[in-house]
Design a protein around this nucleic acid. Structure first.
Lengths: 347, 347
DNA sequence: TTGAAAGCGCTAACAG
DNA sequence: CTGTTAGCGCTTTCAA
């Protein structure tokens, strides 16, 4: 910048003003500076700017794994909204473990990001105090009640309850649940598990322990394996709720491997409404937790906290609406009439 | 840091040495400093460190869209390898357009990242000179011949050629191609298109214009739409090559919508070996371009360039091997007996 | 083993 | 409209 200033015959300050499109620069001066910048191939040093300005115009986004479709789609949405608000997004991968989630917060505070959106899956009630930081953080997806930071939560229990009730309404009586590891903390798996139990209770159906499988990871591989195990046990399952769509898609596969058809033999429903579910065969029924709205709200909240918006008040919990998306995997024995969607629902 | 130094009764330099785990610090001093850091809740300011050190220990990764499974999986791999080499990764989204890809390079040079891995889809031969920058860049996926930077390329043409030959070997005679927009530049779509044509030629099969569909985007939605269009045309297609797995999965769906079964009526093969293909129904045959090897090599190359490794020589092109992964979508008329194995991912 | 001095490149605040 | 001054927090260099 010094060099550009010298070359253009102005002060570094004026160069700075031009670089940042600030007003009060005469057109002729601006032109001179731009010419010099161009000639010398000048590029701002963002590190210096960040240091001086004390902010980076960058939001951190910490997710368990970038290659799980739900989080990949979430990241794309967050990036879109952040960009619209003038921020870039840096993605951190936490591997779904508590230490890395806390580490993500610690790192973020090292003046790397102006704020952090944390898609927490391993943090729980007990970590409340660790979140008591003087740094804008929004927790996404989880519900750590009364936490010291803003939350954009999913209707986990209500969603799974609706999903389970949907299967019951379609005549299923022996409904299995594929869920995740059983941590002490309330998390996606336990909350969704709860919704499943509630729906059974409300319908007066017995809860059978053998129909609940806890998978070590929420991905298609474990979904397929779990579904196969259920089928091989001969539990007579006629409905299956998976706590995520990734698991549900794997489960459909696993059932097919065991010779069971979806939805004829077993109806399957997931949670998340990932894109792949709409194009799967059969297409996957699911709970849509208003992903777009959650992303928009998380970014909006975070940006307002960063800007010190006083009208926000103390940290709050937001839980959005959900919508049951009915597709082929839970369709009636006879496929619906709308020819386009009904072709080859089985296999 | 000043504060910590004062509190511990040492100089800032000593604090710095402790923070960075440098040797030559007496144990008792280290303990004193750590205690003070802890008590004051000290956090390094990475912006300042970056400015002073002139490097950020961060690699940029520019991909068209983070939520396309191929790129999401690529990102996860790059992050893993980078972390092993002591770097973090910041992901940029280019939206698959030329301006943003060039912009990614420009931004990266603003002392934000130490190097950039660019998964270029819109840059071509004509942009060679724009890549002539004094900054470590590795291009991934594309093949801009004789470019001024390192390339880790995919065996695009050879892969699609093998995929097409595979269909021919299975008796397909009217093989369609679902490819991407037809840019002037050589890109994924055009290179894979070329491989398809070569295989037809080598088998003495006629090339029919009506069997090649150029989709506006390489996603399941357009894949499904394209496949439906082909089916409705009554082109009598018995095989289908898609330039990516995402398109192929959509195509299977579209064919089903049109009442065609895969593989019985139409055999389908994709390219990329994304995870979802292994768990789809039917599981998707595909070309595996050694994704793991490509990611490892890209990171290794970039890191060596950053470190100024002189043994590397001038920029080079690397093209890895590929492997045809045969799954249900191209299986013989009778599905194979080994149901278990077909679901196993070819990772 | 520790410390002092200097400056990375930029911009806020104010002066001209 | 443009320039001067000062310093963000850290680390490289060299001396003690």
């Amino acid at each position: 910048m010094q060099d550009v200033a010298r070359a253009a015959g102005v002060s570094p300050m004026t160069v700075s003003n031009v670089v940042n499109n600030r007003p009060h620069v005469r057109e002729s001066t601006r032109a001179k500076v731009l010419e010099a910048m161009d000639r010398l191939g000048y590029r701002v040093n963002v590190a210096a700017r960040n240091l001086r300005a004390g902010r980076t115009q960058t939001l951190g986004l910490a997710v368990p794994e970038v290659d799980r479709p739900y989080f990949a789609e979430l990241a794309a949405r967050i990036i879109r909204h952040a960009r619209a608000a003038g921020y870039r997004v840096a993605i951190e991968q936490t591997g779904a473990n508590r230490e890395d989630e806390l580490e993500a917060i610690a790192w973020s505070r090292n003046s790397l990001y102006d704020g952090l959106i944390l898609s927490a899956v391993a943090l729980g009630q007990a970590d409340r105090d660790l979140l008591r930081v003087d740094f804008p953080v929004v927790i996404l997806g989880e519900r750590i009640f009364e936490g010291p930071v803003d939350h954009v939560a999913m209707p986990n229990a209500d969603g799974t309850r609706a999903a389970t009730a949907h299967l019951i309404a379609h005549g299923c009586r022996r409904i299995a649940l594929l869920t995740g590891p059983d941590l002490a903390e309330a998390n996606v798996s336990s909350l969704r598990h709860e919704g499943y139990l509630r729906a059974l209770r409300e319908a007066g159906l017995p809860h059978r322990d053998g129909l609940v499988l806890r998978l070590p990871a929420l991905d298609p591989e474990h979904g397929a394996r779990g579904a196969r195990r259920l089928a091989e046990r001969g539990a007579g399952v006629d409905g299956l709720v998976a706590v995520t769509d990734s698991v549900a898609l794997g489960a459909v596969r696993g059932l097919a491997d065991a010779g069971l058809r979806v939805p004829e033999d077993v109806r399957v429903i997931g949670f998340d409404n990932i894109l792949a579910g709409a194009y799967a065969l059969p297409s996957l029924s699911t709970i849509d937790p208003d992903n777009e709205g959650m992303a928009a709200r998380a970014v909006e909240l975070l940006v307002r906290r960063i800007r010190g918006d006083a009208t926000l008040g103390p940290p709050r919990d937001f839980t959005g609406p959900f919508r049951l998306v009915e597709r082929e995997s839970t369709a009636g024995r006879r496929p619906p009439r709308r020819t386009k969607r009904t072709a080859a629902p089985g296999r």
